[in-house]
Simulated scan of single mutants.
Amino acid sequence: MTKVIIIGSGNVAQHLIVAFQNSQNSGTEIELIQVFSRQKESVSHLLDLDKITDDFDTLLEADLYIIAVSDDAIADVSSQLPFKNRLVVHTSGSIPLDSLNENNRKGVFYPLQTFTKNKDVDFRIIPICLESENATDFQLLDKVAKTISDKVFAINSEQRKALHVAAVFVNNFVNHLYQIGQEICQEHQVPFEILKPLISETAQKVMILSPEDAQTGPAERNDTNTIEAHEAFLSNENHATIYKTLTQSIQHNGKKL
């Protein structure tokens, strides 16, 4: 039986706890034996209290320790672990492998998804990006990852950084554009609900087409009259600036503006 411990209690940690427990219920050889949380009550709804600790010195011996904390806390947490030469990984998309303390063997177990507390996700379709210092540790990470996901990838630190930046564009930035769209609707007393089928169709298209092939709209058509009318219509200077920048980027198709 491969024993796993999760260190952390935030969004990623909680979703991993659920995923591993679901995996255990399916009869896999992976067992989540303990969770470290500074506030036990934050994860007490997910597992028994006797599996939760708030003291690093009481961490059990395991095959894999997954640090699922904020990026700026990873180095500090890894330095507080009271043991040596065990496999310790973090779940960050942007933090290098070598940010982990030298006392233990290092790795990365990065689930590429946006997580929200209390919102269920299907972990089987979430890509998990793995990195380790040696082949033996990678085999263990691969085994563990495949018990909760059908999409497991070997990704080095530089590739992971590229993925994380790309994810900001397709997730965080796109969501911010949704917010701008909602603000424009609210300003003119139009229900944002009307745009939701368009949002859904746009997301579905890139599942079967490349983003370049899926691109439509006035910038793609070089419809100057419509573009100028839109820019004149936007009273919010920030909205107008973003509109102009994105229009120019589409028209240049990724070339330098």
Score class of each variant (00 low, 15 high):
Q204D: 09
N118H: 10
L112Y: 01
S44G: 07
T247K: 08
L100D: 04
S99T: 14
K51C: 09
I148M: 07
R38W: 14
I33E: 09
T114D: 02
P96V: 01
L59N: 10
D54E: 14
L97A: 01
E237H: 13
L60F: 14
C129W: 00
D213N: 11
I199K: 00
A68H: 05
A162S: 14
V88D: 00
R221N: 02
L87E: 02
I250S: 02
G8C: 06
L97M: 05
Y110N: 05
D50F: 10
D137Y: 02
S9N: 14
S249D: 08
V18Q: 13
Q179F: 12
V152P: 03
L16K: 05
K40I: 15
E237C: 06
G181W: 11
G93K: 00
Q21R: 13
N222M: 12
E61H: 14
F83Y: 14
F20W: 14
G93L: 01
Q21D: 13
L87V: 05
N156V: 14
V12M: 04
D72Q: 14
Q39N: 15
A162R: 15
Q182K: 09
H252P: 01
I74F: 02
D213A: 08
E193I: 09
H176V: 07
Q251I: 13
G181I: 13
V165D: 01
I5F: 06
I155Y: 01
P211F: 01
T28I: 13
G254L: 03
R105I: 08
L112W: 00
K40V: 15
L81N: 00
I5S: 04
I128W: 00
S94T: 09
D63S: 12
Q24G: 09
L59P: 12
S132T: 09
K84M: 08
I250D: 00
N25I: 05
V77C: 07
D55G: 11
V18M: 11
D98V: 10
N101P: 04
R38L: 09
H188E: 11
L177T: 06
K51I: 07
F153E: 11
E158V: 14
F173N: 04
T58K: 15
Q21H: 15
L59Y: 11
D54P: 13
E133K: 04
K205N: 09
N253E: 08
I208S: 12
G8E: 07
I33K: 07
N156I: 14
V43N: 04
Q113M: 06
N172P: 05
T114G: 01
S132K: 01
I155E: 00
S210K: 05
A214Y: 12
F192M: 02
L64E: 07
A73N: 11
F109C: 07
D150G: 11
D63I: 13
E102H: 11
K51F: 09
L60I: 15
L47Y: 11
E183R: 06
N104P: 05
D98I: 08
P127M: 00
R105V: 07
I199Q: 02
S44T: 10
F173T: 10
S92H: 03
I33Y: 07
L16S: 05
Q80D: 10
N238P: 04
A62N: 08
T114A: 04
N225P: 12
Q14E: 12
K196G: 00
S200F: 01
R38A: 10
N134C: 03
L163R: 01
P211R: 03
K117A: 01
M1A: 08
I126P: 02
R105W: 07
A154T: 15
K3S: 12
E220G: 00
